[in-house]
């Protein structure tokens, strides 16, 4: 089955300069009762975004019309905690194509890659430069090129390369799917089971 394709984007960003954002903040547990993958975007950052009466909190960045864009930029250790893939679904469903941080938790990173949501890990300095650029001009754009593995701040031209597993990169660019790949090796799985 094909998955979502990601090659290149240029877009303004949504800054969220908080560290250690855990998946319970991205999507609280009480919203994990759905049995499909759709609709989680409505509850993305639910308790930071809405008060107890479901009114939008005006000081939260997603409620601030000044900021928009397809890239979420967040503080280090993004996506720690629970393995819930619902976190990646919620971010993608809301409309983000990539998340930029200076550090990602392992499970979240894997989940994001499996859903066509690109985790872009940059240095602490570069992350600060993005935050500074958005603070100076809320329409500041970044360009993310997966093929050539770089992220660039459009206004200043400053750029940095980022790492991505070559297999997952090929999957995202071509829409390949892990299960199709493993099933193509089914005879090896059966051989493995026979000899052990």
């Amino acid at each position: 089955m094909a998955t979502k394709i990601f090659k290149h984007i240029q877009t303004p960003v949504v800054p969220l300069a908080i560290e250690n954002i855990d998946t319970d903040q991205i999507i609280p547990a009480r919203f994990l009762k759905a049995t499909t993958r759709e609709g989680f975007g409505n509850n993305l950052f639910r308790d930071w975004r809405f008060d107890e009466n479901d009114h939008p909190k005006p000081d939260f960045v997603l409620n601030n019309p000044t900021y928009s864009g397809k890239v979420l930029v967040a503080g280090k250790n993004f996506g720690c905690g629970s393995s819930r893939e619902h976190a990646a679904w919620a971010i993608a469903d809301y409309g983000f194509d990539a998340v930029v941080s200076s550090f990602f938790a392992d499970i979240f990173k894997g989940n994001a890659l499996n859903n066509g949501l690109l985790p872009v890990q940059v240095s602490d300095d570069f992350l600060q430069k993005i935050f500074d650029a958005v603070a100076a001009d809320h329409t500041a754009e970044v360009e993310i090129d997966l093929e050539n593995q770089y992220i660039k701040i459009s206004a200043t031209g400053e750029q940095e390369t980022f790492e991505v597993n070559p297999y997952k990169k090929a999957c995202m660019i071509n829409g390949y799917d892990d299960i199709d790949y493993i099933l193509s090796q089914k005879n090896k799985i059966e051989e493995f089971e026979d000899v052990r």
Binding site: S83, R84, E85, H86, A88, D106, I107, G110, N111, N114, N115, N165, Y167, D178, I179, Y181, I182, L183, K186, I189
Partner: peptide, 22 residues
């Protein structure tokens, strides 16, 4: 170790997981 739902599907379908050695 813990996995996401796409990987749950992967293991249900193949009893295997694509995984880089930490």
């Amino acid at each position: 170790f813990g996995i996401g739902t796409s990987q749950v599907e992967q293991v249900l379908a193949t009893q295997c997981l694509l995984q880089s050695r930490p």
